[in-house]
Design a binder for these strands. Structure first.
Lengths: 207, 207
DNA sequence: TAGATTGTTAATCGATTAACAATC
DNA sequence: TAGATTGTTAATCGATTAACAATC
């Protein structure tokens, strides 16, 4: 929907910039420079400058960047609307841990639905949000605007849940199973698999 | 320690190959090809061939690769020893969820320690592993061979825990806090931050 | 003005893809 | 032998870094 396509590599860094700016903000720092940001997050300053120029273009020679302006420009890449709505499917250990995390609202993400297919879980609440029957998933998603679905069900059901989410209009998936999800290219999928992460670390420390 | 340096991009794909081979194995498929693997995990076949040639070099023209041989060659990039030992520091919701995950052993990772600084948690057990006092962390790490430490403590204590781990000889860190850890370049760090992941997905679906 | 800092252009580096020769 | 599949070399693409001109 945005006019300029943001390179994959830059997308990976935007959360770092946002984090850094949050920190500067809470320290009441109003103006910053590519050097300061680069040092803080451990990147090269030229790279930071190039990224920020692409995303914001509001740097001023000799002065640098206004922190709040930069935050606004970065935010624009993330969303058009007020909030990004997401749901969690699967309220086992991982799903529950995620649902209890209360930092979402500070970053304009809104957790608006929890689902499980286990009778003993349905009807319970996590931080005031009721766990709904997974059967209601597609209805819920079509009736509410859901941007992202988090999949935290057992591996075997992951593809089914994924298909249901996409059929109901969800455009992004965060997959906590180690299933390889088959999706159309217009859907954004990220995977978090602990064994894969440990494997990559193990390779790096073995070199 | 390995003689040939594996490119960063290839390291990211090794878990995919391992996953795919596990699946082929459980389907009793003994021989495979770059085409089959590529289709399964959604990569180009030339890329798969190049990666596998770098890592294994045991492909045979017209025949392909023996699944078990390929698995062995991939495993060699991951570890020299029998197992990769790791511990979890912080047994809150996330730490507990991770500790309960029982797939580690199937992939030659061994969870051998749990730590927390909360009196109400110390002494409890998760899947037969006792939660130890965080004060014992450095002693434990120096007395046992720990390859990787998972940090699942509150954000504020992350850097302190990280420093303790590294001082005690840990070479890899999996960081579940959104703290930006400051480490020496010889230490491998991977971060899992749910807000960052949601942010990247949100950017991609907003384009 | 001189210094600091941005933005841009060119050069380098690394990763992917294409073309094709080698071979069980 | 012909076909299938690997491994390699060259070409392309994308990302990073270096050099430097522009400017508040």
């Amino acid at each position: 929907m945005d006019f300029k396509k943001i390179p994959k590599a830059v997308i990976e860094r935007i959360p770092l910039y946002l984090n850094c700016l949050d920190k500067l903000n809470s320290n009441n720092i109003e103006t910053t420079s590519s050097k300061q940001i680069a040092d803080e997050i451990g990147l090269g300053e030229v790279q930071v400058r190039k990224d920020l120029n692409l995303i914001s273009g509001n740097g001023k020679p000799k002065i640098g960047y206004k922190v709040v302006d930069l935050q606004k420009d970065l935010q624009k890449t993330i969303r058009n609307s007020e909030k990004t709505n997401f749901i969690i499917v699967g309220c086992g250990k991982i799903g529950e841990a995620l649902a209890n995390y209360n930092e979402f609202v500070n970053h304009n993400f809104a957790l608006i639905g929890l689902f499980d297919n286990n009778k003993s879980k349905i009807g319970k609440r996590i931080l005031d949000l009721e766990i709904l029957d997974e059967k209601k998933l597609t209805t819920f998603c079509t009736q509410n605007h859901i941007d992202i679905g988090i999949i935290a069900v057992p591996c075997e059901s992951a593809q089914k849940v994924c298909d249901d989410l996409i059929t109901s209009g969800v455009k992004g998936i965060l997959n906590f199973t180690n299933a390889k999800l088959n999706v159309d290219t217009n859907i954004s999928v990220r995977n978090v698999d602990i064994v894969s992460l440990l494997t990559m670390i193990a390779i790096e420390i073995n070199e």
